[in-house]
Nucleic acid binder design. Structure first.
Length: 847
DNA sequence: ATAGGGTTAG
């Protein structure tokens, strides 16, 4: 009591004296009381009601008489609390308790409503945290349980504050508040819905706050898992991982649930490698993952069949029992990898385990297996699985039926698909949009476009009938069925499904494809889709481009692509590839290349299909520039990591190169080489591309090292063709053409291998076929000595030259880079001759 | 707590 009073007294002394030692004072209050002893309006302008002033008569009277009644003191405390002056409230409270009043007694006498108003006031002032903490600490020190002091009304003001912070998105404030309240044993779950707090943390990408909040709950592990999962759903792997690490720190025993959750999240975020790292972390810590962790790991990595199988083995080795889900995931993995046989083996194994009672196949097992066969177009096997299923007493669900129908659709069996659809209805199955779509697609795949439209129309009509007149269902049902039976002589029960039909964007996309080349019909479908509140997706646009182009309207197709940009939709690779295909199909290679350049401008990466499509744009050789263009595409393709095994381009290059010979009197129409002679790993196209690059224009050196005869021939011809094109364009030859053959040990034959016969083949081509002059030019011997014009007897010349060189150095035979030189003069002569025999070329030059 | 079905380009 004395202590409290002296503190109280010090609060009123002028600023010249020592600052008040009160530990209840927060900085703000301290400054106002120390700078002025005079009354002063509350610093918060919104706060109209003046605070309980330090000079108030109540306090003065208190100072005058220490021995006032308990009632008076509690009234005073309530009043102070009501005005939000909790420092003073605490002083009074402390003095009351110090005078021997039991905290619970004091508490009972306090006006709870005043406390509630005061709490609300303090919270409104915005200095929530420190004030609440100060108050609670003070209460605790006195021996009053803060929770006890908060009745329904004041708790409601806490709750209101929580809602306000939540609405404002003040995560830090809210979570700190929660921590404080939880520290005083408040049931924070009752103040604010935990999922709302977590959601706020997730939306603000604040995993730390979420974890801090979760730590206040007895079942924090479960909350950690939901935090990890929620971040995953937001595709925020980094935050999910932070939450996961925190979860690990907070639990003494490894939380398998958290492990499997983070692994699932890795899958959601597309980072399957990370899931492996996490799993390896478990193994490294000598912790055996449970079956859920293994299932999740296998599922996330199901695109990598070997990994999934390896994990399965590891799991067995560690003594973890695989369950049906584990096997289902393995089947899925096989399905993705299109490994039908392996899937069959696993399926057999499952059935064997089942016969032993170790396992029970479920609807997932059968549906997945049906999908395996559906993808492989093995519809009969798919139907067999259905029989297995029926004998095992497992009821097919919508997904099972859909997969079965899809199996027939993929095999082009419309009738069978419809039969299954009917069977499904008879069995009481409820088709959904996906199922309807599969059936429509079955018709489209089999080019039964009319049928697709008829089905669509009947389903739509049925849908509206059901919504308008449910009572007339039966009569209209029958008449409709009978009508169709008469027209088409089939039982068509699928027209009367009794299930509402809700078309989706996919439905419309499938139907748009069924429009064939009828652009206006496809366009009308797209409009209809929009009126139903469905939005066209990338597939819709690509299909529309395809239909438009297919109708012969290339400009229209490109226009659609452009309009996509204008409406803020980024066309995807497929939209561009489709447009490029249209250009190629309508023999507009320039447009195709323009679109190809455009897509790259928009940073849309071409894929294998795009490259293959664009490379078919030039089916016949044209100008050097055009060949260069194709070759540039080829090089990009290689750079992007696609296999360089393109038949079209090789053919194009070969044709273009051999074109050099077209005007020679021999070789008419006959290629000396065949494209099939190129090895699969051939660097030919790379080399040709290199030689034809404009940057290489002045370099007249051809390196034939490591090439086969056929390849060497193509390269030489390519360079000659380039020279010819340049010549026609007005660029004359400045130098000899140098051909590098390879290293040769002096006096010996060429190093045996692929280069065998290259020299002879090249010389034959140049001298015999083209009538050019060729010199041998070993780099060691120089022009005067080693160079020798080849005569008609090539072999003899070489032999003489070689034996002479050999005798010069009998003991040590150095390596020499063998070269050939084609003289500038003979090239000029050849070009001249070609101009004469090719009037078109002359026309080009004179223009 | 995990697993299965539909539509676009070569």
């Amino acid at each position: 009591m004395r202590d409290a009073l002296s503190i109280l007294a010090s609060a009123t002394v002028p600023p010249s004296s020592a600052p008040p030692p009160g530990h209840y004072r927060h900085p703000h209050r301290q400054s106002t009381t120390s700078t002025t002893a005079k009354p002063q309006p509350h610093p918060n302008p919104k706060h109209n009601k003046p605070q309980f002033p330090t000079y108030s008569p109540l306090l003065s009277s208190y100072r005058r008489d220490n021995r006032q009644s308990l009632t008076y003191n509690t009234e005073l405390a309530s009043k102070l609390a009501e005005d939000g002056m909790f420092e003073d409230f605490l002083m009074i409270s402390e003095s009351v308790v110090a005078s021997g009043v039991k905290p619970s007694e004091f508490l009972a006498l306090l006006n709870a409503k005043c406390v509630a108003i005061g709490v609300a006031r303090v919270l409104d002032e915005g200095n929530l945290h420190s004030v609440v903490k100060m108050l609670f600490n003070g209460l605790e020190k006195i021996g009053i349980d803060p929770v006890q002091m908060f009745d329904a009304v004041s708790t409601e003001s806490l709750r209101r504050e929580c809602r306000r912070l939540l609405k404002r998105g003040e995560v830090e404030q809210l979570v700190s508040f929660m921590e404080t309240l939880a520290g005083f044993k408040f049931q924070i779950r009752e103040l604010v819905e935990p999922s709302d707090v977590i959601s706020l943390c997730i939306s603000q990408r604040d995993p730390t706050a979420a974890i801090r909040y979760a730590q206040n709950f007895p079942h924090m592990e479960i909350m950690f898992c939901s935090i990890i999962l929620e971040f995953g759903k937001k595709r925020d792997l980094a935050s999910a991982l932070t939450a996961f690490e925190a979860a690990k720190q907070n639990t003494s025993t490894p939380n398998m649930h958290a492990y499997r959750t983070i692994i699932d999240v890795c899958g959601l975020c597309g980072d399957y490698l990370k899931s492996r790292t996490i799993y390896e972390g478990l193994l490294a810590g000598n912790i055996t993952p449970n079956v859920y962790v293994f299932n999740s790991l296998m599922n996330v990595n199901s695109r990598d069949l070997n990994y999934a199988l390896g994990t399965y083995k590891k799991m067995k080795k560690l003594g973890v029992t695989a369950e049906i889900t584990t096997h289902n995931i393995l089947l899925k993995s096989c399905c993705v990898a299109a490994k039908v046989e392996l899937a069959q083996d696993i399926y057999k194994e499952i059935r064997e385990l089942e016969s032993k009672g170790a396992l029970k196949s479920d609807v997932f097992t059968y549906s997945t297996m049906i999908k395996v066969f559906a993808d492989a177009k093995m519809w009969k096997n798919a139907l067999e699985v259905k029989e297995d299923m029926v004998t095992s007493g497992v009821i097919p669900d919508t997904v099972t039926w859909s997969s079965l129908i899809s199996a027939c659709a993929n095999a082009g069996l419309v009738e069978q698909a419809i039969k299954l659809f009917d069977e499904m209805l008879e069995a009481g199955g409820q088709p959904n949009s996906r199922c309807f779509n599969i059936l429509l697609h079955a018709c489209v795949e089999a080019c039964q476009y009319d049928r697709a439209f008829r089905l669509f129309k009947s389903w739509k009509e049925r849908g509206s009938e059901q919504t308008t007149s449910d009572n007339n269902l039966n009569s209209s049902d029958d008449s409709l069925a009978v009508h169709h039976t008469r027209v088409t002589s089939r039982p068509y029960s699928h027209l009367t499904t009794g299930v509402p039909f809700r078309p989706t964007t996919s439905t419309y996309n499938i139907l748009m494809k069924a429009c064939g080349a009828d652009y206006y019909r496809a366009k009308a479908l797209m409009d209809e889709m929009k009126t139903l509140g469905l939005s066209p997706n990338q597939i819709s646009w690509s299909t529309l481009i395809d239909v438009c182009g297919g109708s012969g309207n290339v400009a229209g197709a490109i226009q659609i692509l452009r309009s996509l940009h204008e409406t803020g939709i980024q066309p995807d690779v497929i939209a561009y590839t489709t447009a490029i295909k249209i250009c190629v199909k309508h023999k507009k290679p320039k447009l195709a290349f323009m679109l190809f350049a455009e897509m790259k401008k928009y940073e849309i990466k071409p894929n294998l299909v795009t490259y293959k499509t664009i490379l078919t744009a030039r089916s016949r050789y044209g100008s050097l520039q055009e060949v260069q263009q194709s070759l540039a595409v080829y090089q990009q393709m290689r750079k992007a990591g696609y296999k360089p095994n393109d038949y079209y381009l090789k053919q194009l290059i070969e044709e273009w190169c051999e074109g050099v010979l077209q005007n020679e009197h021999h070789n008419e129409g006959q290629f000396a080489s065949r494209i099939t002679d190129f090895g699969p790993q051939s660097m030919l196209l790379e080399k040709v591309a290199e030689h034809l690059q404009d940057s290489n224009a002045e370099s007249l050196s051809i390196d034939l090292q490591g090439l086969t005869k056929v390849e060497a021939r193509i390269i030489v011809l390519a360079v000659l063709r380039k020279i010819k094109e340049k010549y026609i364009a007005g660029n004359s030859m400045e130098d000899d053409v140098s051909i590098i053959l390879g290293l040769q040990e002096l006096g010996s034959d060429f190093i045996k291998g692929e280069s065998d016969g290259v020299k002879e083949a090249v010389i034959r081509l140049l001298e015999h076929d083209l009538g050019l002059q060729v010199f041998a030019a070993g780099s060691r011997s120089g022009r005067g000595k080693g160079s020798r014009m080849y005569s008609s007897s090539i072999g003899e010349t070489i032999e003489r030259s070689e034996s002479k060189q050999a005798s010069e150095s009998p003991t040590r035979r150095p390596m020499v880079l063998q070269r050939l030189k084609v003289t500038r003069e003979s090239l000029h002569h050849w070009l001249q001759k070609k101009m004469e025999s090719s009037p078109l070329s002359i026309t080009v030059t004179t223009q």
